[in-house]
Amino acid sequence: MNAAVRSVLLVWLVLMISTAASTWWFTQPMFDPVVCTVAVMLIAAVKVTLVMTHFMELRGAPRPWQLAGLIWVLAAAGTVIAFYLL
C-alpha cells in the first residue's frame, strides 16, 4: 500500500471514529448537553477541515486558498457556537 492510499485510509478512519464519538458518546446522559453540543460542533469543524484538505485537494492549493478555507471553517463554527451559547 503506497503513502497516498495510507493517508486517505487514515483520514477516513479518523472521520469514522469522530462520527461515532459525536453521535454515540456525546449522547450519553452523563454529559452536560451544552458541553456535548459544543464538542460536536468542534468535531464537525475538524471533520470539515479534513475533508477540505484531503478530499477536496486544498492541501495542494496556493497558501491564500488554504488560509481562506481555514478561516471559513473557524468563522462558521465560531458563529454557530456563539449563537448557541447566547
Rank of each mutant, 00 (worst) to 15 (best):
M1D: 13
N2D: 15
A3H: 07
A3P: 02
A3Q: 10
A3I: 14
A4P: 07
A4S: 14
A4Q: 14
V5L: 08
S7E: 09
V8P: 06
L9V: 10
L10E: 11
V11F: 14
W12K: 09
W12N: 12
L13T: 05
L13A: 10
V14P: 04
V14G: 05
L15F: 02
M16N: 10
I17W: 07
S18G: 14
S18R: 06
T19M: 07
T19G: 08
A20R: 10
A20N: 08
T23A: 14
W24R: 13
W24G: 08
F26D: 01
P29G: 05
P29F: 03
M30R: 08
M30T: 07
D32H: 12
D32Y: 04
V35Y: 14
V40A: 00
V40H: 00
M41V: 01
L42M: 10
I43M: 06
A44W: 15
A44S: 15
A45T: 06
K47E: 15
K47N: 15
T49S: 14
T49K: 06
L50Y: 01
L50M: 01
V51R: 06
M52V: 06
H54A: 09
F55D: 04
M56N: 06
M56C: 12
G60H: 13
A61V: 02
A61Q: 05
R63L: 14
R63H: 11
P64I: 05
W65M: 12
L67H: 08
G69R: 03
L70S: 13
W72T: 15
V73F: 04
L74T: 06
A76T: 12
G78S: 00
I81F: 00
I81Y: 00
A82T: 13
F83N: 12
Y84G: 01
L85D: 02
L86Y: 12
